[in-house]
């Protein structure tokens, strides 16, 4: 039993880390802030720990207990769970949409758009329905591969780094920070609230350590990617590119025979987006299932079909 719990903590850490990366790298939300990018990223990394430390205990109290006959508690739980479930569905849409646009724009520019959407959404729906242990195993395998790829790509990128592009600058005034706060809130804090909800429903009782640790590790992975992008391109040029990290990796070569290493970075994008979408869908299913158990069973395929339809029409 003890052994199982230790293993589960590691698995959950991996899950939280990949969720934290999610579609953040594809969206590259700091592109609007120019030279402040690295400072804001570090600020958002600190902010990313807030859900793990504050929201998780709250969700545990409200969502994990059985719904009793007390109307006040029921209303409070419903008021929390239903908006969070709806937001989780929105995160599924954003994560899937970002990955599918990225993949159809960069990986398969000329073909396979519908096939790609079908395959990816199929994986999301399937993963959201497997048991917690299945999702954990998938997370750990992906995490090990992703970490190896990110570290290797960072090391290969070192000869291309320009130290003059490095600089940590925080917003100079309250007005500047106020302009960046919505970005931080939207991109890092809110999606991680869904992860806290998922952990409150699915994780063992002491999930906060795995949640906080995983979030910190995820921020570490993001930091490596952001640093690689910044030190290769500089903040202002990186902000002009559509997918800066993929482009920063694309220029790498090892020796005379290994070129175009960006394929390894696709693993990061794929695994992180897939896991974020699957966890969000699983969280929405579980949150909705507290109140409408029969309806919740059909939520993953229905959500997958709707997203597929929108993507096909778009």
């Amino acid at each position: 039993m003890r052994r199982h719990q230790t293993g589960s903590g590691l698995h959950k850490t991996a899950l939280a880390a990949l969720f934290t990366v999610g579609n953040t790298l594809i969206r590259y939300p700091w592109r609007s802030v120019g030279p402040d990018m690295l400072g804001l990223f570090l600020l958002s990394a600190v902010g990313a720990l807030i859900p793990a430390l504050c929201l998780y205990p709250l969700f545990c109290r409200l969502l994990r207990r059985r719904l009793s006959g007390r109307r006040g508690r029921l209303c409070l739980a419903a008021a929390l769970a239903l908006p969070l479930g709806a937001y989780a569905l929105f995160c599924v849409w954003r994560s899937c949409g970002d990955y599918l646009n990225f993949a159809s724009g960069l990986i398969l520019p000329d073909s396979g758009r519908l096939l790609l959407a079908l395959g990816f959404l199929g994986c999301v729906v399937w993963l959201s329905r497997v048991s917690g242990q299945g999702l954990d195993a998938f997370s750990l395998v992906c995490f090990v591969c992703v970490l190896a790829c990110v570290l290797a790509l960072f090391c290969f990128g070192i000869p291309h780094f320009r130290p003059e592009y490095f600089g940590v600058r925080l917003p100079g005034s309250a007005a500047e920070l106020a302009g960046s706060l919505p970005v931080l809130l939207w991109e890092s804090f809110l999606p991680l609230a869904v992860l806290s909800g998922y952990f409150a429903l699915a994780a063992p009782r002491r999930g906060e350590r795995a949640l906080a640790g995983g979030t910190a590790v995820g921020c570490g992975i993001l930091l490596l990617c952001v640093l690689q992008t910044l030190l290769t391109f500089g903040a202002s040029y990186a902000a002009e590119l559509r997918y800066p990290y993929s482009f920063a990796v694309r220029i790498l070569s090892v020796g005379q025979y290994f070129f175009r290493l960006e394929g390894f970075s696709y693993l990061l994008d794929y695994a992180a987006c897939l896991l974020r979408a699957a966890v969000c869908l699983a969280a929405a299913r579980r949150l909705l299932g507290r109140f409408f158990p029969r309806l919740a069973r059909w939520l993953p395929p229905a959500a997958g079909t709707v997203i597929f339809g929108i993507f096909c029409l778009g």
């Binding site: 993949a103 990986i107 398969l108 990816f120 199929g122 399937w126 696709y266 693993l267 794929y270």
Partner: peptide, 9 residues
């Protein structure tokens, strides 16, 4: 499941 999408590159 991941392989077809990665090899698609």
């Amino acid at each position: 499941l991941a392989l077809p999408l990665l090899l698609a590159g």
